[in-house]
Design a protein around this nucleic acid. Structure first.
Lengths: 126, 126
DNA sequence: ACCAGTGTATCGCAACTCTAATACACCGGT
DNA sequence: ACCGGTGTATTAGAGTTGCGATACACTGGT
């Protein structure tokens, strides 16, 4: 499940780790309530410092994907479809707000943005 | 035209400068072929280092808004509507690609993104 | 041709981020 | 109650980035 990381990549190690785990959780490759590898285990397996794994886990915890219990371990969080949907909504909104702010800074109109979205997604926005 | 900068802001000084100038150019407050303040003038006016202004100018030059001519000065670039439109397109696409990449990293679907875009813009995507 | 005014290049320092190292605090089976 | 395994906290070092200082190189009116 865990291939080697690219330590030369501009995306930090902790982000690479978080990304993989997030994908695994979303695809149910890791089931709810399932225990993740311990900080030290995963760190050893990836030949990385435990603190780096912790940082990845913290990010996922902040996003509501996992739960860290001191002394016990780290577990995939059980979330209701409603909660999950709400969280996705929140995240998507945050990203879009950032996009629009950046666009405004560059002097781009909503029209410009919509057009680009439609082109990139091959899907038209009503 | 140039109020004081916020040196405590997380957005770098050079970015703040670039942002203002970009807005002024887009709104035609600064006309094509018009000379911008010299690096030293603007730096003095904003109580900032000339190198910081240079950095802002470079960014705008890379975006195609201005042209720096050694020994002569810095000028607003004259661009045809077609070029201009193409450039806006390019920038919008770049931003949207980043948005989609980030969304993918977070495990969000295109549907999630589209929904958020529509909500934030109050405009439907076809 | 001069030279005042313009952009350019290089270096250095401070702040921040990422990663690692080390020591600490908690849980749970035995 | 122990103690091996777990997460937590603090500190340190390497790299990157923002900003400033200083010296250099070019342009254009006189």
């Amino acid at each position: 499940m865990f291939e080697r990381l690219d330590s030369r990549s501009p995306t930090p190690l902790y982000a690479q780790i978080a990304e993989r785990l997030r994908a695994a959780i979303v695809t149910r490759e890791l089931s709810p309530a399932e225990a993740l590898p311990s900080v030290r285990q995963l760190a050893a397996s990836l030949r990385v410092n435990p603190a780096t794994v912790v940082q990845a886990y913290r990010e996922l915890e902040a996003e509501g994907f996992i739960e860290m219990r001191q002394g016990a371990g780290t577990f995939v969080r059980e979330v209701s479809p409603v909660q999950r949907s709400a969280e996705r909504d929140r995240q998507a909104t945050e990203l879009v707000r950032r996009l629009l702010a950046d666009a405004a800074r560059l002097g781009l109109s909503s029209r410009d943005v919509i057009t680009a979205v439609e082109r990139e997604l091959g899907e038209k926005v009503r």
